[in-house]
Structures are given as C-alpha cells and as structure tokens.
Design a protein around this nucleic acid. Structure first.
Lengths: 338, 338
DNA sequence: CAACGTTATTACAACGTTGTAGATTGAGTG
DNA sequence: CACTCAATCTACAACGTTGTAATAACGTTG
C-alpha cells in the first residue's frame, strides 16, 4: 500500500537517502540521477509520509487557530484570512472553537489536540483581561484580541477605539447630531464593547456633544436579533435619532431592519454605520457603511509572529495593531445635512 | 524541552514501555506502579508526541473536511457540525477550502496536505456530475453533496427534491397560489438548483398548478444580493406573487428585503420560505420559515462512514440521505387564505 | 516446596524519514 | 600520473512511540 523512500530507491537504483535528497532539494545531485528518481517517484506514486517527517524534523508544519465560534461570520471570515496567510507560508491550519464566551479556552489551551501543531493563534474573547485562562503555556502562542492584556505574549489587535471614533466622526461629518450606539455592555470595563464605546464617546466629546444614556442601546451577544432589540430600546425611548453606530455589523444590520420596519429611510432619515465589514454588509439594502479592520493584515501578522516564535525567536513580546479603513456604502451616503 | 517516555520512566523507576502501557490503558499493571507512573507524568508535564505515535500506529487520528468557502454561512455551520461529530469520536478535524465553484477541488484532492489526515470528507459543488475531478483516490473518501453522482464512493446527501417540495407544499397549504421560486440556474440539469426546482415543480403539479417562467427568478451565486435581484426580476415582471420559495436562506433573506422595501408585508401580502436553516434565518424580521436539512445528522453519518473506511471496511459504497424538517417561523404564519 | 498459570514488566524491533559524517567519483592541477 | 578538492552519493543513527514476544514476579495448587 504505502510506497516508501526505499521502494523508490530500489526502482531508481540509488540509495534511499538519495531519494530523500532529491525530495528535499539537496543541491549536489546529478541531473541524470535526479531525473531517474523523479520518474520512479511518479511511477510509484510516492508521497512522503508526513508523520515520519514530523517525527524526524521535530515539528509538524501545522498551526492552529482557535476562535470562539466558526458560525459567527466575523470569525469564519477571519479563519478564511488566516488560512490563506498560513497557506502562503506552506503551513497547514487547524481550526478549533472555544465557545461564544470563550468557555472552552482552557480546554483548547491544554488540549492534547494542540500537540498536532507547532503553535497556536488564539482569538481571545477577553471581556475581562484579568480573568484569563492559563496563558503561560510552553508552546508558541500568539494572541489575537481586542486589547493587549498580557504583557508577555505576542499580540495582534485592531484599532477598536480609533475605528469606533472614526465611524462616529463619519456620522458627525455628514451632519448627524443625535447618534445612537448599539451593543453596549454596561458593566464591562474592558473588552471590545468598552473600547468601541470609548471611541464613540471620544468622537462626540471632540465635537462638543455630550453623551446621553438613552442613545446607548445594550446588547449582550452581538447578533442581528439583539441589534433589533437594541435599536428598539433606543427608538422606544422617544429620543430623536439621526445616526446609528452599530458596534458590529450584525448589530447594525439588525438595526437597519428595525429602522426600516418603522417606515424610516436609511440614510435619508437615519444614517447607519457598522464595524467589521463582514460579507453580509455589502449585500444589505442599502449597503452598510462600516469599519474594515483589515483581517488580512491581522492574519498575516499573526502567522508571521507565530512562525518567528516557532523558529525559536527569543525577542520580547511583540505588539501589533492593524490599520483600519472606513468602507463607505449607501447607508451613509447623500445624507441631507441636519 | 520535550519530555519523553524515557524521562518519565527514569523518574518512576520503570521501563519506558511500562509508561507507554499506562498511557494506553494496558490492563495488567499493578495499581502502585500505575500511580507512580502517573505521578511522574504529572510532575514532568509529559504529553505524548503525536508524530511518533502517528508514525508507529500508521494513522493520524485526523480527518479533513473540504468545503467550498468557509465564509458562506451554510458551510461554516456544516463545518461546525462536522467538527462536533469528529470530536465526539476523538478525531481532530482539518478544514480545507475548495472555492465557491469548487475550482480548487482537484488541488485539494491531490494535495500533500491531505497526507496529514486519514481520510477526507468532500463537500462537492457538483453542478455537473460528469465533469468531476479525479475522485478515484487511494485514500478513504466520503462525498457530501447534493446528489449521488458517483457510483463507487460513499455518499451522504440531503433530500433536496423532497425538501423543496415540502417547502412549496407548505406555501400551498397556507393558501398561496402564485408562488415564485428564486435561485434558478436555467442551463443546469444537475446540481442543487435543478433538484430544488424539481421539488418546487412537483408540488405545483400535484396541486394542479402549471409552472410559469415569470415566477422563476434566476440567481447564479446564492447570496443575499442575488436574492434581491431575483426577487426584483420576478416582481418587475408584473405578475402577481403571494408566496416565495428561496432555494436557500440567503436568497430568501434577500427577497425579504426587496419585498419589504416595496411596502409589501411578510407574511400578510407575501409568504416566504427558505432552505438550509442557517442561523441568520431566525434573526430576520419576521423570522424565516425554512427547511432544515439536519446538518448534524449529515455530519455524523459522514464521519461514521469515513471511519468505517479508515478502519478498512470493504463494504460496497454506502448511500445515505438525511432527513429534513420544516421549521416554521413568522414568515409563513397567520397568512390570510387567498 | 516444586511446578504451574496468571499477572506484570521489559527488551527489542520496527514505523519512514532526515542529519551527520564518511565514502566514492571525477575533473583539474602541478 | 599521483594529488587535491569539489561534487555526488551512501551508511548509519537517530526521532519517540507501540506491537510482539520473551522474561520476571507472584500467588496457588498438588
């Protein structure tokens, strides 16, 4: 069944080590020999036994990515990006799930499954940066998260505060003055919700506008359903709203639905902006303006950092914050100024 | 760095094979010995080297799942199901992507990456069952697809025709008589689109209703945007529509948007049903009635079949069609009968 | 207490690959 | 033509585990 180096060697009339050399591009091989070996490989359909190579080399060429839930679009798209980044470096990627609230993080961090791979990229949920699972693991680890919480570990993050601020400023720039924010976690001091709320408030403050609690819609999970509810909460308060910042796109899309079902027009009556730039944002009607956190950049940087660690880099923990861009679509276009 | 069986053995004062025996639950070990070994393992933080075990055992304990695109919700949710099914059997899962049109299928089938795993579950796109990549591979393979196209290979599929028929019958049952269908691929004879269209037509025929071309909305990719366009195509034709069957949920959600933005109410003016039961279907307003293809059942069966092949089962190619259920939500409720 | 049959443990040989170091070849040089 | 030095190839020993088979320990029994 399994064709080995020895089988190929026998067929080509060389030592099995020569076959190995051919495969690994050892420079000093006569063209004639190389050709004979390659032909034998082709004839026998040899493929190298990865388990043996891994054992010998002491590494697997696989890395793993742990995300909360694959079925959350943002993470599916992130996984897609990381997969491409890994592929570009000839690495295979394994995906693991830690649960929506990160409840399986400890299990994943300690998992035997992890032994399949050379290192781990962990997309933390990290609502509370001080209540972390044991991150002092003995293998290469890169964190992908909202904020840099852990001093000793490589960390790639996105510009949550700045992005949220830019989103809010965009609404201000097109004339909105009564801007709601959706997705607030009232009790939380760290984590994405707190950071993006901070950006929102910074923008308001810079424009000389005081934040108002009735414009802040709460939402625990950031999905469409809670977006609908949060929008409802704000609109039902009776306050005037001419702009909405959804702290992620799902919230914004939920809000879009609620706004339209009340007979209000987007963007004419209410302008709307999201955060994440998931695929669904461009398919809504109107298309959703949003902050693109540059997943490709995040993914590439994370894989790069991880590889450096795997290769034994002893540099101090690296930090990287990805750039973001504002993607303008119809949900904030041609707004009549207030 | 790496702790091996030998290190543990030295600490526990036994031969390294005894340690191996403890780990592998060999029955004849004295309790005292077992305890000593287990303590040594704990103290040294030993974890077994998977590469070595794989090499020795001749298998990896990993399987791979190839889907077109992870960012398509249906596949993300399918991957989630397969991951759980694999986990339940102590298998690790690797995910690969074959591209929206399956253009990377040949690469994945022949990929060296595949050598990491003991077998492959391939979610085929299979628009054309006769234009297949080389499926005569030498490793265990299970197909997950719309229809059973290949005689020689284990195949798990869903009841596309029956599901579509049930969806359409549901619309008929609540009184719809002018039922549009969205997502038609006019030139295609096989594949999901053709099958679901067939189910739609069967239901109409059984009710004594003739199909009408102007009620069939075309859509190449099945995403929200094309759903909007397909719905527009049908409504712009000026024909009366009181029910819509989206051949998947994304199409239906796109249609929902188009319908509502024309001031029509769902379900009062137009009832709407989808197919797939993706998460987003329950977050729309109104919630989307849809056909649930029972991904968990599909996933479990596929993993089961694959394991049997990996274990050397020589049974003739198995076929399995998952059951489906109709999930009723508001988009088809309390419809005033026509 | 010798002989026996379990129960526990261990020695040894793989699994298929790559790194190291040594052996061979062959061309160029004095 | 011996001599040197690359270029080319090969022998051997790992990597850390598990399967096989042999050995050691230990109660039981006659």
């Amino acid at each position: 069944m399994a064709v080995t180096l020895r089988d190929v060697a026998a067929r080509a009339g060389v030592s099995f080590k020569t076959v190995s050399n051919v495969i690994n591009d050892y420079p000093h091989i006569r063209p004639a020999t190389r050709e004979r070996v390659e032909q034998a490989i082709a004839e026998l359909g040899y493929t190298t036994n990865i388990a043996a190579r891994n054992l010998r080399r002491g590494r697997t060429g696989m890395i793993s990515l742990a995300v909360p839930e694959l079925r959350v679009s943002y993470f599916a798209e992130l996984a897609d990006s990381v997969m491409r980044a890994a592929e570009a470096r000839d690495l295979a990627l394994m995906i693991e799930q830690t649960g929506y609230y990160g409840e399986r993080e400890p299990a994943v961090l300690g998992s035997a499954m992890r032994r399949f791979t050379d290192g781990l990229i962990l997309a933390t949920v990290a609502a509370d940066p001080y209540h972390h699972p044991e991150l002092k693991v003995s293998y290469p680890l890169v964190l992908l998260g909202d904020r840099m919480v852990e001093e000793q570990i490589d960390h790639v993050t996105m510009a949550n505060v700045e992005g949220a601020r830019a989103a809010t400023e965009h609404l201000l720039a097109i004339g909105c003055r009564n801007i709601a924010v959706l997705g607030v976690h009232p009790e939380e001091e760290h984590g994405t919700a707190a950071l993006r709320l901070e950006g929102y408030r910074q923008a308001l403050a810079a424009a000389g506008i005081a934040p108002r609690r009735e414009l802040e819609g709460d939402a625990d999970r950031w999905v469409r359903g809670t977006g609908v509810a949060a929008m409802r909460q704000v609109l039902d308060s009776g306050t005037k709203v001419d702009g909405v910042f959804g702290m992620n796109d799902s919230l914004a899309l939920g809000a879009l639905h609620e706004i339209q079902s009340r007979g209000l027009r987007v963007p004419q009556d209410v302008a709307l902006i999201g955060f994440d730039n998931i695929d669904a944002a461009q398919y809504s009607g109107p298309g959703l303006t949003t902050i693109d956190p540059n997943r490709d950049e995040i993914a590439n940087r994370a894989v790069e950092l991880l590889m450096a660690r795997i290769d034994g880099g002893e540099a101090p923990a690296a930090r990287f914050t990805a750039s973001f861009t504002l993607v303008q679509r119809e949900s904030t276009s041609c707004q009549a100024s207030s």
